[in-house]
């Protein structure tokens, strides 16, 4: 593994704009949520440090409050994390194969929706050998701001009026929604349009499996539609 210091710092610098601010806000909201639900500060901030997946963290807190069994909680959270499998399968092949090392198993912990969405958008404009350095700097910042933000959110929870908390918990999903408008490949655009309604519908009947159902069906249909149009263009 050899990272280019200048490119790592460029990733750090880019992260310290909107991405870190958005994640910071989301984690502030999450810290406040942990406090409001009577969890202790260690447990609340440990989820940001060790899990670093906001939707899964929210599921964890909600199920803890409902006194669900540990096994049920672990299964539900693990199922919402399935997306990381295909997120990594689409992110890491964009790094040159000669850079592959056990370092990947460390940097993968920093993979979450923010860094992934930005990478999928910007990697095509970047030299392949620069991508790992850039991602390391960018994603590390995203992870590093999360735990302090959670602790801070927990500590100030009592003093923050609920209308501010509303904004804090809304900013992350809104950011992801807005990044979808910047997705270019046609197959991925169709996948977003199909995945959203499929996810809603399947959530009503199979909440635990709704992401898998939406991903497999929506993604596969989108892929086939895209392939059909690609074949027609070549014919």
């Amino acid at each position: 593994m050899s990272l280019n210091r200048d490119i790592v710092l460029k990733g750090v610098k880019d992260a310290f704009g909107a991405p870190a601010a958005i994640l910071f806000a989301g984690m502030l909201g999450f810290g406040a949520m942990g406090q409001a639900n009577g969890l202790d500060i260690w447990l609340t901030s440990a989820t940001s440090f060790f899990m670093f997946a906001l939707p899964g963290q929210v599921v964890l807190v909600e199920m803890l409050v409902l006194s669900a069994s540990g096994v049920t909680i672990a299964i539900a959270v693990t199922l919402t994390a399935t997306r990381f499998f295909t997120m990594c399968l689409t992110l890491f092949p964009q790094f040159p194969e000669k850079q592959r090392s056990s370092f990947y198993y460390l940097v993968v912990h920093f993979v979450a929706m923010t860094a992934w969405a930005v990478s999928m958008r910007d990697f095509p404009k970047m030299k392949p050998e620069d991508r790992l350095s850039y991602f390391t700097g960018f994603a590390f910042v995203c992870w590093a701001v999360s735990t302090p933000a959670t602790v801070l959110g927990y500590m100030v929870a009592g003093q923050v009026p609920s209308y501010i908390n509303l904004g804090l918990v809304f900013i992350n999903p809104l950011f992801f929604l807005l990044t979808f408008t910047e997705v270019k490949p046609r197959g991925n655009r169709i996948a977003i349009l199909l995945g959203a309604p499929l996810g809603l519908l399947s959530y009503l009947w199979f909440p635990d499996y709704s992401l898998l159902i939406a991903g497999l069906f929506g993604g596969t249909i989108a892929y086939m539609v895209d392939k059909y149009f690609r074949n027609r263009q070549h014919a």
Binding site: G29, G187, G199, L200, G219
Partner: peptide
């Protein structure tokens, strides 16, 4: 290409679900 489409469908499902069928605040 297929894996990318599956991933985007999954994260779109998650995002829209959090906005339209949220829990909590």
């Amino acid at each position: 290409k297929w894996l990318s489409a599956v991933t985007y469908a999954m994260v779109a499902a998650l995002t829209v679900r959090i906005i339209l069928l949220p829990v909590g605040l």
